[in-house]
Write a protein that binds this DNA or RNA. Sequence first.
RNA 1: GCGCUGAUGGUCUAAUGGCUAUGACUGGGGCCUUCCAAGCCCCAGGUCCGGGUUCGAUUCCCGGUCGGCGCACCA
Length: 587
Amino acid sequence: MDTYEKIIGLAKRRGFLWNSFELYGGTAGFYDYGPLGATMKRRIEDIWRDIYVIGEGFYEIETPTIGIEPVFVASGHVHGFSDPMTVCSNCDSAFRADHLIKGIVEVPDTLSAPEIKQLIDEHGIKCPQCGGVGTFGEVFDFNLMFKTTIGPGTQRMGYLRPETAQGMFINFDRLFRFYREKLPFGVTQIGKAYRNEISPRQGVIRLREFTQAEAEIFINPRDKNHPKFSMVRNAVLRCYPASHQQNDSEGGGDSDAAGDDRAAGVIELTAGEAVDRAIVAHEFLAYHLVLTNHFLVRAGVDPARLRFRQHQPDEMAHYAVDCWDAEVLTDRFGWVEVVGIADRTDYDLSSHANHSQHDLSVVLEYDTPKQVERIVIKPDMSMIGPLYKDKAGKVLAALKNLKEEDLNGDEISIKVDGEEIRIARDVVGYETVIEEVRGEDVIPHVIEPSFGIDRIIYAVLEHSFAEEIVDKETRSVLRLPAEVAPVQVAVLPLLTREELIDPSIKIVDMLRRSGILVSYDDAGTIGRRYRRNDEIGTPFSVTIDYDTLDDDTVTIRDRDSMLQIRVQVRELAEKVHAMMRSGFDSP
RNA sequence: GCGCUGAUGGUCUAAUGGCUAUGACUGGGGCCUUCCAAGCCCCAGGUCCGGGUUCGAUUCCCGGUCGGCGCACCA
């Protein structure tokens, strides 16, 4: 049994993760979070909020999970998020149609489905599976977005969002005002996204409905330095730069098997070095690599099984400047992407500006207004008007665009509708004025860290899972950080006796009132109950014994060391809170 | 989506063309028990779905669903 099986088995048995719709036979690509899973997920999301919403001041917004068609036309998902496919009628194998004609056309992306089909037929493409010629059926587009209709009738198309990002981009102008028209600012969203995967497998690693936590940070394209970079300059990152990935068969490599040397190309360096040596494109991106690293480790990812892999140039979206994936090492799937951190430039805002016909540029005010010398051209319209009649308007516009150097000589040459027109110099007057320019129009660039919460939860489960031999028995333990454990304290009467149960119940109430997630368990022997709690990652167990009745003390038992300390009941809540922050207080 | 393969209590598993479908673990109740899955008694719980063959199907056949592996896919 490999680790994946153990984790999924444990998660199923103990109420972390269940296959959805199991009562009706189940459906691939959907998972339910059970009581412990949902609690753990919420707590991981809260760590994320603590870092991004509170720590960075990036407010969280909430936008619909259904989007209208124009949004996804602008984002490129309607056209780009689908793949042309075709099926061989002989062996029923399905193929990417554009891949079949790769050797024939340079850019198959631009072709329509019928055009691809025609090329396949003309060139007698063989089926890679069975070798059949002329066996391919029609080429059809398979779009990975779930489609629906909005309102009665079927007129208006809607799509379930394939990412949460677009909801933030299309609110840019509102957000910019909210943040009082200053760059940089950030906004976040945690929510569901949907992709109708062709063949989802690998359990929770590839889902049709999943949770994303995304931040969109709008920055000044002229200044990608980060105001707080000095605070993270010395933070160490495990980087796997594109230039070190040559030996990998594929840049992606997220699910290729084995390979113990995969760490070979990984280098450890500080964020400062990464920027100084131009390994990471700029400070803003490096700052967010560090922040991502903080978050993942705090959530319970093993730092030794975490790396930042840079996208290869051909792997990156064409508009992106630089892109890094946080990857975690898993037992069965190898390195798996859990976070993508990209500089998306002005691609999204420009595209929405074009498609929506709304200007999304902002004025960047200079610190001090610049004095700019400018010439103002003053043509004599009483001459030009009668001379050029219906063309006069265009002539005027062309003249206004002239530069000072164009005004030398006796004649001025302009082009109107491709025709050269010469105008006597003395018809056009001009003067030089000093203007105050307060700023310039720019479209902000976007830094986007995008987190796959479900994958992170799986990674945390796997990385915190351990089996150890204690007294010849195997002890399964989830070494979850106290901050993410779905049960923080188990309260256990040493024996199932009324005189111990009564004070135990009182202690449960007391701890719960102080905000601790408590479970109470009096079934079976004390050892069995410790093991049960080890398996779900409960960091501390409080045991009530006969000494409790005498001197009002209880023991606190530490999940990881299995050691115990004795504390006064009146100090218990405070001690537990302290230990959840800074670890078990060893005897 | 294609090919191969599997599916029996919550979990793991045995067996079978007809008989009360096996066992372990877990779970519930009780006895015992003064700190790391001890023991004893009792209880609950199962043949993935649909169709076919058959007097009779959990078992054989076909289709579906789900899982695993390989191929393809993973903006």
